[in-house]
């Protein structure tokens, strides 16, 4: 008797979320099987990778991370262009870090103008994130939505404390929302429900489940993402059928392993490769956890990750 491989059929399907407008569009999600299980279902959109750009020159980065962007770190627009034109970024993620009220406290208007400039000067869709201060992020994201009206950006991070502000502006001006919950499957669902109740269409939300780097809690991220995907696919839970994104580079590059010089820790090996590999390994783990969008930093780590994606999904 011939062997028939057992197949897992799922009841549900992840919604397809479209970011961007016109000819610069990226689609996320749309799959109906667990990560990498191409024999079980369809994956119309492979995981996408965005390169990150900061609104001010980074101060504490590992030398290896700075190198590719050395000539552009003081100019976010040029940085974004380089990410796209030289490193072929599929999307750009602008971190408006200097809006942090405990830091430079740049105003929402100024930040939004920068977001518009960056968006206008690149040929790929833009993701815009704040500094991580919920209240200020709400204010900044709302302004970004207004100034970039109709461009269908992915803006965030919407959290429980500011989701109304960001959600309302995203509806009004036609954008998608990046919604972050603190590493808990029910809280992730609750935030989706809250945004849904507010009127944000569920196909305009991408979930960020809180991402830990390799060696720094990635197993928690893995568990939460797996459970979200199982709820979405096996249990056909409508409120969980949204693509997942991971803001991972920020986490990866602040680990000891990515930054510590070989003199300080001789067993760690060559620093110039270490950070890149750490980022790539984290990325691969997240792909296996079910991500649809990775926010990455180093072009070489991106190249390695893409190789794995193609091997996993296209058999190349």
């Amino acid at each position: 008797m011939a062997f028939t491989p057992p197949l897992e059929k799922y009841a549900g399907k992840i919604r397809e979320v479209v970011i961007g407008k016109g000819d610069k569009v990226v689609k996320l999600g749309g799959h109906n099987a667990m990560p990498g299980c191409i024999f079980d279902g369809d994956f119309p959109n492979l995981p996408k990778i965005a390169l990150e750009v900061f609104d001010s020159a980074p101060e504490d980065w590992a030398p290896e991370a700075i190198k590719p962007y050395e000539d552009v770190v003081n100019d976010p627009v040029a940085w974004a262009k380089k990410a796209v034109d030289v490193y072929n970024a599929e999307l750009v993620c602008l971190h408006l870090k200097s809006t942090d009220p405990n830091g430079e406290n740049v105003g929402a208007d100024e930040a939004a103008q920068l977001a518009k400039k960056v968006s206008d000067s690149i040929s790929v869709p833009l993701i815009v994130l704040g500094s991580g201060n919920a209240e200020k992020d709400g204010e900044v994201a709302a302004k970004v939505c207004e100034v970039c009206a109709g461009q269908n950006l992915l803006v965030g991070l919407a959290v429980e404390d500011n989701y109304k502000k960001i959600g309302a502006a995203a509806i009004g001006y036609g954008h998608c929302v990046a919604a972050q919950s603190p590493i808990d499957v029910n809280l992730a669902k609750q935030l989706n429900i809250l945004l849904d109740n507010l009127g944000v269409p569920l196909d305009k939300i991408v979930m960020e489940p809180s991402t830990g780097a390799l060696g720094y809690g990635i197993e928690y991220t893995y568990s939460v993402m797996e459970r979200i995907e199982l709820a979405a696919l096996s249990q056909n839970d409508d409120k969980m059928q949204l693509p997942i994104m991971n803001i991972m580079a920020v986490e990866t590059w602040k680990t000891r392993e990515a930054k510590l010089d070989v003199d300080a820790e001789p067993t760690f090996g060559d620093l110039s490769k270490r950070g890149i590999l750490w980022e790539a390994m984290t990325a691969v783990d997240l792909i296996l956890s079910g991500t649809s969008l990775l926010i990455m930093r180093h072009p070489e780590a991106v190249r390695l990750t893409k190789e794995i994606i193609e091997e996993l999904y296209l058999g190349k």
Binding site: A142, E146, A168, I171, G172, Y173, L198
Partner: peptide, 12 residues
């Protein structure tokens, strides 16, 4: 309408 409508939705 859009600018003020946002305030209706977010509760401001």
């Amino acid at each position: 309408m859009r600018k003020r409508g946002v305030e209706f939705v977010d509760g401001t």
